[in-house]
Amino acid sequence: MSYQASSQVRMITLNDLDKRMAGGKDTTYVINFWATWCSPCVAELPNFEKLRVENAKKPVKVILISLDFKSKLQKEVIPFIKTNKIKAEVFLLNEPDQQQYIERIDKKWTGAIPATLFVNHKNRRFYEKEFTYPELKETLLNFK
């Protein structure tokens, strides 16, 4: 499987995501859950772009996972990513059962977005909140 960055948006299951992270060695993944219809999510996306650019030389990987409907992939998600010139890796979550995937991503998650998961091989922290850029930077800095 190749994962090079492009304006392509692929579907991803949680199993694929877990495999991806398991192969990441010392990489810290910052995984943002969003949707094109979620205005606070859209508002904070530039902060994740900035985090990605500023950490480009570090073992930090920003991944945006869209919770848009799968039927909206071609018509809404891909055009949105192009229009907004988002260069981070973007996936659309391909899981049929919300109840199951919400619990699996984090037991405390109510399902509200935006939500962001920080994860590396030692640690996992989940935030059901919006991030300003300074908060995002500080959270990454304190995440060991």
Binding site: A35, C38, W109, I113
Partner: peptide
């Protein structure tokens, strides 16, 4: 009780 993705309240 169940959880779901939805639109936050405006």
């Amino acid at each position: 009780s169940t959880k779901a993705i939805g639109c936050g309240i405006k």
